[in-house]
């Protein structure tokens, strides 16, 4: 225990811990909506699209969180615009928009990097040990806002994400709900940029909810258990980053992916190895391997 508590005497570790807990929490809550709507790719699209906004904000001396947030929301609008105004399908629209934005972001940051002390890698892969006091406050404010909105709109968002047509027919303002959801996702990604980085934030959005989904049956349970899983992953990743000098994003993602793997294999209801499938005598591991090979 001392091994874990001892680093916390440093101010930067305390700040990292707060950010890790908050980011693990809100990513799982908001990401659950992406998972149930099969919109995982949208999370990826928004996260890659925040980079140019961040770079432009840095260039003109504005708050980089605000710049990143605006770029994230604009990217979702660009995707929707391409989808409705052309025969291009949504997944292709996402792919086009996010790779274009990502390319622009990398170009801009590379240009800034030459004469400023800004490290592209920190935005791409996260640097949770380097968060400032101001960033802790920003993350805390965003987290509070996100959680309050999810709490207030919980039943409407449940209806909308389960049955969008039914929700529209019941008179709910589904366009507004959808836009609100996009704003929540963009805010969450902006808050997580510093700890996991834009490339891997998708894992923290999707994997905790997906893990919880294998274990519980209702959306709010998925969110709560997902939040616990997300917090465990983000704090473990933070310690791994501290002890082994790893970039925090990959460390967090490896932990959360490991937890998902355990749930996938051993979940009481959906586990590959625990789910009873009678009439088969051979060991289950062997059966799964054969199934994988047999698909070719």
């Amino acid at each position: 225990m001392d091994v874990l508590l001892e680093p916390l005497q440093y101010g930067f570790m305390q700040r990292s811990l707060i950010v890790a807990v908050l980011v693990g929490l809100i990513c799982a809550v908001v990401g659950s909506y992406l998972m149930v709507q099969r919109l995982a790719l949208l999370g990826d699209a928004i996260s890659h699209s925040v980079l140019p906004g961040l770079a432009i904000a840095f260039m003109i001396g504005a708050n980089i969180f605000v710049g990143a947030f605006i770029a994230g929301v604009l990217s979702t609008m660009a995707i929707a615009w391409i989808r409705t105004r052309s025969p291009i399908k949504e997944d292709a629209a996402m792919g086009i928009v996010f790779s274009a934005c990502f390319a622009l972001g990398i170009t801009l940051i590379t240009l800034i990097q030459r004469d400023n002390k800004i490290d592209l890698n920190h935005f791409l892969f996260g640097n949770i040990l380097g968060v400032s006091v101001a960033e802790v406050w920003q993350t805390a404010l965003i987290s509070l806002l996100v959680l309050v909105v999810v709490k207030l709109l919980y039943k409407e968002l449940l209806f909308y994400t389960f049955d969008p047509v039914g929700a529209q027919a019941a008179g709910l303002p589904t366009n507004l709900l959808n836009f609100g959801l996009m704003v929540l996702i963009a805010l969450t990604i902006v808050a997580s940029m510093k700890s996991v980085g834009v490339i891997l934030v998708l894992a923290l959005l999707i994997t905790p909810g997906a893990t919880a989904y294998l274990l519980v049956n209702r959306l709010h349970q998925v969110m709560l258990l997902g939040a616990a899983i997300g917090i465990i992953a983000s704090t473990s990743g933070m310690y791994l980053s501290y002890f082994y000098n790893l970039p925090s994003g990959p460390a967090i993602v490896l932990v959360v992916s490991g937890l998902f793997g355990l749930a996938l294999l051993f979940s009481p209801t959906h586990g590959v190895l625990t789910n009873p499938q009678p009439s088969l005598q051979e060991p289950k591991v062997w059966r799964e391997l054969k199934g994988l090979l047999g698909r070719h």
């Binding site: 149930v36 209806f159 389960f162 047509v165 027919a169 959306l219 349970q221």
Partner: peptide
């Protein structure tokens, strides 16, 4: 004033919700 029931195939029945959750959606408005 309208209750509309879409085709069953239009929604994702693997959604994490119980029967009660879905029926209560009728009272949200």
């Amino acid at each position: 004033k309208i209750a509309y029931v879409p085709q069953r195939s239009q929604v994702d029945w693997t959604y994490p919700a119980t029967v009660w959750d879905v029926v209560m959606m009728g009272r949200i408005r």
